[in-house]
Design a protein around this nucleic acid. Structure first.
Lengths: 252, 252
DNA sequence: AAGTTTATGTTAATTTTTCACACGGGAGAC
DNA sequence: GTCTCCCGTGTGAAAAATTAACATAAACTT
């Protein structure tokens, strides 16, 4: 099928760095050259590869020299984040009103999300940009000062902004979690923003890949009991899972 | 000479990100296509660029934030827009507070802009993303609903937002202009937003490439006399130029 | 089950690139 | 001084790769 083939192409390309169409044809002898071309075209649109004459090369291959903050961050624990994003994407129904934070996991979520008629609020401009490709999704960006490291915005004024809005679900992620400190992040204003979001959201979904466990960041914005659903990857420790389930929080 | 030409190609490519051979030929009209090809070939060997079908792209471009990159961008009147952007970029001084709209010309402006300590307000998320690469620029994004066609945000609430802010200069562009209707755009809320910006800006710079002349869009947001400086390209008709200069508006 | 969208294959047309060779002018040899 | 020998460059044909257009098959809707 298309989806899997494209993922496999991306994988191989990430591994080998660079490939010609001829080589790709050897790997996928069952499909035509044209189909592979189309796959490459799509991967290029998604920004995952670059098509060069004769074939394609992985973006990561080029990026290995890179020292840029955000790009680097996007490559940490990518696989886990995609898995989490896919799970979260399945939870968005037609017509719902969703808040999405500006993190990298949310970024993957916007890629995986089906193109349903719904309303999304976000404070991440990279997320907004990604979502802009969906025809049916109505996007609202929360304004404010832009933080360059994670490309998300926040401002104290955003609080008033939220007075007028309600969310069915808020899907957010934390950069750190411990049972004692709860979910924390690096920015005071972002923490404030999220707290306000939680007030107006009927349900809070937390996306947390297992690499965040045991870390502590300066600003706690939620305790365990503040969330309704925890979305995580397969490496999430059992004892932690218990912790959430004991409080009737769904872990998926 | 060869050496200098190659360096210049590398420079331009780093700035623009991506160029076709055709565009390169325009920049270097004295040498043949084959020579430029050979230059690109050498730059590729040095690992500074990547040759793609039809031209080449800067390695730095690839290292940028994923998603925004290498998608097919509209190449309408690119050259004129870059010229205008360069002129406008020169007008931004250290320490100033600037409003920038979300159009494609503003996008180029953010690329050309020097990395000065200054404050930029914008309603364009692509613009914000581009500016995020500058270390010294402080960026604030105006929130609101995202328009997918031009990736800019606007909301009626933004008016109140501006009550608290002042701009030294506002640099905006219009999608249409006639002497009678003035400067117009496609969106009611964007038009409102800009009107509010004008109220708070000490000086208004209008970027208008000559292809916009004679077109009319539904919402007029400024008349000729509302602006202070008009920045345009070399194809701007003399009789129109007169029109502005008669009103003491600088045309550059 | 009919209709509609989506994925794929096939072939021709177009575009881009490569290749091979020719030309000219400058550096050094005699 | 002038004769080579290269290096950088230009030219046009040949090869390669990409795109476009159409046809068909599969999957999904209603």
């Amino acid at each position: 099928m298309k989806r899997e083939r494209i993922e496999e192409i991306a994988d191989i390309l990430d591994k080998r760095g660079k490939m010609t169409l001829e080589q790709l044809e050897e790997v996928f002898p069952t499909v035509s050259q044209m189909t592979l071309r189309r796959d490459l075209f799509q991967l290029e649109e998604d920004g995952r590869i670059i098509r060069i004459r004769g074939g394609a090369m992985s973006v990561k291959e080029v990026q290995k020299v890179s020292g840029e903050a955000y790009t680097k961050k996007t490559t940490i624990n990518t696989d886990a984040k995609i898995v989490i994003a896919q799970k979260a994407a399945a939870l968005i129904d037609e017509g719902t009103c969703v808040f999405l934070d500006g993190g990298t996991t949310a970024m993957y979520l916007s890629k995986e999300m089906p193109d349903l008629k719904c309303n999304v609020f976000t404070n991440g401009i990279a997320v907004a940009m990604e979502l802009a490709q969906k025809k049916n999704v109505n996007i609202t960006v929360v304004g404010g000062q832009l933080m360059k490291d994670n490309l998300s915005t926040s401002s104290p004024a955003a609080k008033e902004y939220f007075d007028l809005t309600n969310f069915e679900i808020a899907i957010v992620s934390a950069t750190a979690f411990t049972p004692e400190q709860g979910f924390s992040c690096n920015s005071q204003i972002e923490s404030d923003l999220l707290k306000n979001v939680f007030k107006k959201a009927r349900q809070v979904y937390m996306m947390l890949d297992s690499s965040k466990i045991g870390k502590i960041n300066p600003y706690t914005f939620a305790k365990i009991e503040d969330i309704d659903v925890l979305i995580t990857d397969d490496h999430f420790p059992k004892e932690y899972k218990q912790l959430f389930e004991n409080r009737n929080i769904v872990v998926m």
